[in-house]
Design a protein around this nucleic acid. Structure first.
Length: 434
RNA sequence: GUGCCUGUAGCUCAAUUGGUUAGAGCGCCGCACUGUGGCUGCGGAGGUUGCGGGUUCAAUCCCCGUCAGGCACCCCA
């Protein structure tokens, strides 16, 4: 047996590629609707592009090695440094805000689990050069509309939104000193999954008892609602972002959740994650505002925000909900020869039909007509053309509608135009299964 | 990287307390069917039981190792 693929790497036979292609199609279509332009970069980068500036959590799981030229290289674990390099090189001449998206294949060396491999494709959308809260609403709206593009609704997917500036402001008011903020955020990040561990972390921070109590209640619905009502009285962009999303008409999707922190340290403001409503899968999408990152990575001092959305969890959600694309037929027409004397005419006709743009197949062996039609069915062809000595003598073909199970004689001279109207005016396909 | 669980045909699964030649359904190929398709019937191919070692008269079954997958940690592109 041939050696297997590497763990955490996927093969894409046609039935799996169909789902991936569907995901890419929706990603590109919705991003384009928001005026985003697609870019790309190299999948292999110098190692120091990531070790210098990315967070430790990414560096620890880099898929890195030494190449034949003794260069230290890494398969890209994220797109942002590459984006920062490109923006840094040309931002001066670009009209702001910059709306760019990409669908990179990203890599990470770690033990795989469901929804979590060593490679995946990720939609990256970034909005660069606008610091105002409408930009935050715009990028969240884009993420939501991608969900809608797949046929998902607010009952399927929830958007949990927070803002580090807002939470930090309230934490300060509750008595948390600035130097303890990072540790408090780490604890908040854990509160949902591991309340005991989070409490222990808070206890080690030597906070005032009242502050600890206030923080612990961030998982309490009533406490969060109080915070939400108070947002208008606090000078942070969170309230404006939420209000803009309401005006856009997407408030149904949004849950304000101050326990959303995001693992990456570089977020400076709005942070958000998309989860399936049943919470059985990992996060579908995560993003936020990173106003200082581009300068530290690529030298362009521009505010920015964006999100990443992977194909693995999303694909599982679509399969769970029956929203994956139906099996598509591979051909429109099948041309069958009755006798070996008919084969040359089949070849000529099939070639003409292919030139006309139809997807055409014919039998490569000498199977009887019944077998050939069987193959036509298995391919999902809507029509089959049968050519035998009798048809040739009359200058016509038998055109079978495989779905309607009807058959008619069609003159050679009108065949292409006749088929054009049929294939254009009827469903392109039917279910190949019985 | 740590712990637990699971590996039998392309797929989904069987196989008595360890006991003869590891079976079935689906799928695939062929025949019935030499001018007409999804049905039916019959037949066929396809397995070193993930791999390696050990215990035993005998291992798909028990033990160890290894690889792969699932789950939980870690972390969350």
């Amino acid at each position: 047996m041939i050696s297997k693929g590497l763990p955490g790497f996927r093969d894409f036979p046609p039935e799996d590629l169909a789902l991936r292609a569907h995901i890419f199609r929706v990603w590109r279509e919705v991003a384009a609707r928001y005026g985003f332009e697609e870019y790309d970069g190299p999948p292999l980068e110098p190692l120091d592009l990531y070790t210098g500036k990315s967070g430790d959590e990414i560096v620890a799981q880099l898929y890195s090695f030494t190449d034949k030229g003794e260069r230290q290289v890494a398969l890209r674990p994220e797109m942002t440094p590459t984006l920062a390099r490109m923006i840094g090189a040309r931002a001066n001449g670009m009209k702001k805000p910059i709306r760019w998206f990409s669908i990179p294949q990203l890599f990470r060396y770690e033990r795989q689990q469901r929804g979590r491999l060593r490679e995946h494709f990720q939609l990256n959308c970034d909005l660069i050069g606008e610091a105002g809260p409408l930009a935050d609403a715009e990028i969240i709206a884009l993420a939501i509309d991608v969900m809608r593009g797949f046929g998902l609704g607010p009952e399927d997917v929830r958007v949990r939104v927070s803002d580090r500036r807002f939470v930090a402001f309230r934490l300060a008011a509750a008595g948390v000193p600035d130097e303890l903020m990072p540790g408090v955020f780490r604890a908040i990040d854990r509160m949902e999954k591991d309340p005991d561990g989070a409490s222990r972390m808070l206890g080690e921070l030597q906070l005032a008892p009242g502050a600890i109590d206030w923080i612990v209640r961030l998982t309490d619905r009533g406490h969060v609602d109080d915070l939400l009502r108070a947002r208008a009285t606090v000078s942070t962009p969170l309230g404006a972002t939420l209000d803009w999303l309401d005006k856009i008409g997407l408030a149904d999707w949004i849950d304000f959740d101050p326990t959303i922190v995001r693992g990456l340290a570089y977020y400076t403001g709005t942070v958000f994650e998309l989860f399936d409503a049943k919470r059985t899968l990992r996060a579908i999408c995560g993003g936020g505002r990173y106003d200082t990152l581009l300068q530290s990575l690529g030298g362009a001092d521009l505010p920015a925000l964006g999100f990443g959305m992977g194909d693995v969890v999303l694909g599982e959600l679509l399969k769970d909900r029956g929203l994956h694309p139906a099996i598509a037929p591979s051909i429109d027409l099948f041309v069958a020869a009755v006798t070996s004397d008919d084969v040359p005419y089949v070849l000529k006709l099939a070639h003409e039909l292919r030139d006309a743009g139809f997807r055409v197949e014919y039998a490569l062996n000498g199977n009887p007509v019944g077998k050939q039609l069987n193959l036509a069915n298995a391919r999902g062809a809507r029509f089959a053309i049968v050519i035998g000595p009798d048809e040739r003598a009359r200058g016509e073909v038998q055109l079978k509608d495989l779905m309607a199970k009807t058959q008619e004689a069609v003159n050679n001279t009108s065949l292409v135009s006749h088929l054009s109207s049929l294939v254009a005016s009827r469903p392109m396909s039917h279910d190949p299964r019985p």
